[in-house]
Design a protein around this nucleic acid. Structure first.
Lengths: 135, 135
DNA sequence: GATCTTATTTGCAATGATTACCACTATTGA
DNA sequence: TCAATAGTGGTAATCATTGCAAATAAGATC
């Protein structure tokens, strides 16, 4: 029992992980798993769809990726700039996104929750529109 | 060609519609299609699952129902109190919901969008917590 | 009431994203 | 080099939801 990583943080560096990380790094848009997988394929990278799903979920779990669900129920991912809590202003045409902070909204949410006797509050705030480039 | 309803608003009153309306009326919680269908079955009502889906979608389209998507991608429905634009404070345990208005948030959303050059803005704001009864 | 038009209903197949399985592969510490 | 096991990925399964086409039944008209 050679506990190298007491906290279970043992990650191996694989070709697939690097490829996915690269794809995510060079895009500032929210992308779907299928979309990312297709791009990797086009680039000649040999990566399984299942692997893409696995990795995206893992990265999202550790907070390295932001996740978003479309109205059609598809999950979109994007690399997370800050570790801070934040929201997004997303372009519904190209997926490009801007991270926005919203202290005012946070405060409002807290107040509304308290006023109604709710506890353990979490909130979802997403703004969708058309970015300057897509207009 | 007896145009009784020039605007295509021809709705027939059926046993199934009434049953579903009843189920929705006696609940103040967000319910899933499957959930509502199960309740109708338990009550002895003979209604097809497809019909429940059809009706829920139709009602949601006309704004008579509020729709909400869970993290798992399931759609939840609830009768809509007001025709006004509003948001929800939903109990993650029982689905009970309170409609809340958020002028402050609306204004904030508009400001953020304009500042970033985005147009055709829509926003999603949902608060989730545990209601007083479920604590 | 009888009849007709067509809105509704509904079982079943199909869809589409995502996950479960699990045998196989490859990274990394020793 | 080698063993332990994290990671991979093809395939089958899941699950909410929708498409379809035939059967049913409101509501208007006769």
């Amino acid at each position: 029992m050679s506990e190298s990583f007491p906290n279970g943080n043992s990650a191996r560096s694989t070709r697939q992980k690097r490829a996915l990380a690269g794809a995510l790094a060079r895009s500032s848009s929210f992308r779907s798993a299928q979309d990312l997988h297709a791009e990797l394929r086009l680039r000649g990278e040999r990566v399984g769809l299942t692997t893409v799903y696995n990795q995206l979920r893992a990265l999202a779990d550790t907070g390295e990726l932001d996740v978003l669900r479309t109205d059609e129920g598809e999950s979109l991912y994007r690399r997370c700039s800050s570790g801070q809590h934040h929201h997004h202003l997303v372009c519904r045409s190209c997926g490009m996104a801007v991270e926005v902070e919203a202290d005012a909204v946070e405060a409002w949410a807290e107040a509304v929750a308290r006023r109604n006797g709710f506890t353990a509050i979490t909130h979802t705030v997403e703004l969708t529109g058309v970015c300057p480039n897509c207009q």
